[in-house]
């Protein structure tokens, strides 16, 4: 049956045309299309990857900024605390210094007063001694004879002097 017998003419043309089509399409057809599609796919994949990375970076940056902010706040707190402490300390120091100064001044004043007093006493004493001598001279000059009276006067004077001294 001729349905099942291959025909030589058709065979020839089939081989020629199919071969030609195959050569043309395998050179300029399918590989070009497949390459283009794959390149596009790679490009899309790459873009997606880049976007993902950018997102990640963004999240990273956000976290980083949050961290930096928190750190800054912490530092601020620490600095504030430190400053406060320092303030207290300075005030304390000032107080202490002032107190010491006052004490010193008071002490100095007391010392000076004492010194003045001693000096005054010394001056008074010498004055008294001089006075006594002067008195004594006068007494001597005036009434050497009145023994009893003299004695009384001297005693009284001396008492006065020692009273003053004490």
């Amino acid at each position: 049956m001729s349905l099942f017998t291959p025909d030589s003419g058709l065979l020839f043309w089939m081989i020629v045309s199919f071969g030609l089509v195959f050569v043309i399409l395998s050179k300029y057809g399918f590989p070009v299309i497949i390459k283009a599609v794959e390149e596009r796919k790679a490009y899309i994949d790459h873009s997606l990857e880049t976007a993902r990375q950018a997102n990640e970076q963004l999240a990273h940056i956000q976290a980083e900024s949050d961290r930096i902010l928190a750190e800054a706040k912490e530092r601020q707190n620490a600095i504030l605390k430190e400053a406060l402490a320092e303030k207290e300390q300075i005030i304390d120091e000032a107080h202490r210094k002032a107190a010491a100064e006052t004490r010193l001044q008071v002490e100095e004043a007391a010392r000076r007063i004492r010194e003045e007093k001693e000096k005054a006493i010394r001056e008074v004493r010498s004055e008294i001694a001089d006075l006594s001598i002067a008195i004594a001279e006068k007494v001597m000059k005036e009434k050497i004879s009145r023994d009893k009276e003299q004695q009384q006067i001297i005693d009284r004077l001396l008492d006065e002097v020692s009273f003053c001294k004490s």
Partner: peptide, 24 residues
Amino acid sequence: NVCAILISCGLLVFIVLRTANWYA
């Protein structure tokens, strides 16, 4: 059949090359 093959081959080449050309 040969003519049909030639026609279809021409059409096939045209279709595929046109598609390939689109990407260019």
